[in-house]
Amino acid sequence: MADQDATPVFQIQRMYLKDLSLEQPNSPQILLEQQQPQVDINLAMAAGGIAEGVYEVTVTATVTTKLVDRTLFLIEAKQAGIFEIRNVPEDQLQGILSIVCPQMIYPYLRAIVSDVCTRAGFPPIMLTEVNFQAMFEAQQAQAQNGNGSGVLSSAN
């Protein structure tokens, strides 16, 4: 009975960079090219329990920049957060993990990707804003159709 009357809890325990890689497989020769590169950005989100009422949520950005068929650079960054979420109805928990938590993590991921581009000697790539609610709803629709992937993709 005390659990039913308990106050909902939502706290950020920690934000951290979980993984980061930069590859420039065709450097230095490709750096002399004067063409406009093609940029492909893929985002993925994952969430899972790590203890009772404690969850890890990750947002991963994979940025691939190519000149014709050769890779100029590839960045993969995974930003994560640990969240304490207790006394929340089960039907609301998935929305919190898939919408609220990624919205808190994403600004850190955007800054990291931009910073890595600059430090690698390229103009910064600013990841666009993401509507995690629309992404969650699309995943729910795909899951109902038996094809849930959890990946959002865009090309510039």
Rank of each mutant, 00 (worst) to 15 (best):
I82A: 04
T62A: 15
V68E: 13
M126R: 15
K78F: 06
P123T: 13
L67V: 14
C101Q: 08
Q133H: 04
T64M: 14
G121S: 11
Q103V: 11
R110D: 03
R119S: 09
I112H: 10
L97R: 01
F83D: 01
M126Q: 15
V59L: 10
N87W: 09
N131P: 04
A80S: 04
D115S: 10
P123C: 12
P89I: 14
F73H: 03
M104H: 06
G81L: 03
L127H: 04
V88L: 02
L93S: 05
E129P: 00
T62G: 12
P123N: 15
K78L: 12
V63C: 05
K66N: 11
S98N: 12
T64E: 13
K78D: 07
A61T: 00
C101G: 11
M126I: 15
N131Y: 04
A111I: 08
T64H: 08
L109R: 00
A134Y: 10
V100S: 11
I75K: 01
R110E: 05
Y108V: 06
S114N: 09
P123K: 13
A61S: 04
L93F: 06
L127A: 10
M126C: 15
D91H: 07
V116G: 00
P124H: 02
I82Q: 03
I99H: 07
I96D: 08
G95N: 14
Y108T: 02
L109S: 01
D91I: 06
P124G: 03
Y106S: 02
I105A: 02
R86G: 05
F83H: 02
C101H: 08
Y108F: 12
V130Q: 09
Q79V: 08
C117K: 06
V116A: 02
F122L: 15
P123E: 15
I96E: 07
A134G: 13
V68F: 10
V68I: 13
V130M: 13
V113C: 11
I99Y: 06
N131V: 07
F132A: 03
Q92H: 08
V130E: 09
G81Q: 02
L67P: 04
C101K: 07
L72W: 04
C101T: 10
F73I: 08
I112K: 11
I96S: 08
L127I: 11
L93H: 06
F132N: 01
R86L: 12
F73A: 05
I125D: 00
